[in-house]
Design a protein around this nucleic acid. Structure first.
Length: 305
DNA sequence: AAGACGAAAGTGGTTGA
DNA sequence: TCAACAACTTTCGTCTT
């Protein structure tokens, strides 16, 4: 694949040098290493892969770019030695060039305050996300939100950790993967109130359109925490569908309470009765709330036992 | 005795002036 | 920024199974 060499005048080191066409499709000056033309690199996987081996074999360029890594995984290291890759000393001209590049790399990557901020933030995000067992997509979204907040200068004189927590909360809501403020606060050093404040700031300033919280998204979580058959889920969803037809049952109500009540009703209908207390605990609301929603639903939907 | 029910008082968030 | 307000929580006494 290194065969197609041709004569070419390199714009970097004047004169005519051999230019090699490499596997990647790049044309590279054989003397100074300048890449003359670059093909666009497809970072996606080549084909579907079903085993780890296949995946490795078909990989093109390693991990796809991610918002979760502070430089999106695209960093290049320029080391401190004034040697080229074959160990030869560089020409004075080239040395000056490399020196300049190195300076700018350091300035742009590590020493800019934004990047320093990001490094800290993404470390915290990493920690939070793993403790909350967030999916990669949610974590990535949180990272994206954070980046945006940072570049919109929303972060001036605000705590990094609190903004990260707020971004995580926003990402969870956007992806309909419910995590309560309480859950996030438990794993963060920031208290619920502050996280909420930062979340609202982010949501407002960035015009995030939050999907209306849907009780259905809480159902699997509640059921899995109870010792009742998962098959009941169908019944629960039926009830919630009917609930959604009556908007006055939903507006302003805690979706978890609605989900809990639906689970409770279904548990009675299917003879898998669970206690209000158990369900309330699984849903993260109080018995009283379960009761109130239960009462309303039974009345409005005219459910008979 | 455990679960369900409901009243009363307290809490934090939303909204509109 | 403040007050009014609705929803939810906490607590506790009573009723039901």
């Amino acid at each position: 694949m290194f065969s197609d060499s041709s004569s070419f005048s390199c714009p970097e080191c004047s004169g005519t040098h051999i230019v090699q066409k490499r596997r990647s499709g790049d044309r590279v000056c054989a003397q100074c290493g300048l890449v003359v033309s670059e093909k666009k690199i497809d970072t996606g996987p080549e084909w579907r892969a079903f085993t780890a081996e296949e995946r490795r074999a078909r990989e093109r360029t390693g991990a796809p770019t991610r918002y979760t890594i502070h430089d999106k995984g695209l960093s290049t290291a320029i080391d401190w030695r004034d040697r080229d890759s074959s160990g030869k000393r560089l020409s004075p001209k080239r040395r000056a060039e490399i020196h300049r590049l190195r300076k700018w790399q350091i300035r742009s990557r590590i020493h800019s305050s934004n990047e320093r901020n990001l490094i800290q933030a993404l470390t915290e995000l990493d920690r939070l996300a793993s403790q909350l067992e967030l999916k990669m997509s949610v974590k990535d979204l949180a990272a994206m939100i954070y980046r945006k907040a940072l570049s919109n200068r929303l972060m001036r004189s605000r705590s990094i950790d609190a903004t990260v927590a707020g971004a995580v909360y926003a990402a969870c809501r956007l992806r309909q993967m419910p995590r309560s403020l309480k859950e996030i606060a438990r794993h963060s050093r920031i208290d619920m109130k502050k996280i909420g404040r930062h979340y609202r700031l982010i949501a407002r300033k960035m015009n995030l359109k939050m999907p209306v919280p849907d009780p259905i998204t809480y159902v699997p979580k509640i059921i899995s925490r109870l010792s009742i058959p998962g098959s009941m889920q169908g019944e629960v969803l039926d009830i919630l569908r009917r609930v959604k037809a009556n908007s006055h049952l939903i507006t302003g109500r805690d979706p978890r309470g609605l989900a809990a009540a639906a689970v409770y009703i279904a548990s009675i209908l299917t003879e898998n009765r669970a206690t209000q207390r158990e369900i309330a605990q699984a849903a993260g609301v109080t018995e009283v709330t379960v009761r109130n929603r239960y009462k309303e639903l039974v009345q409005e939907l005219e459910i008979a036992f």
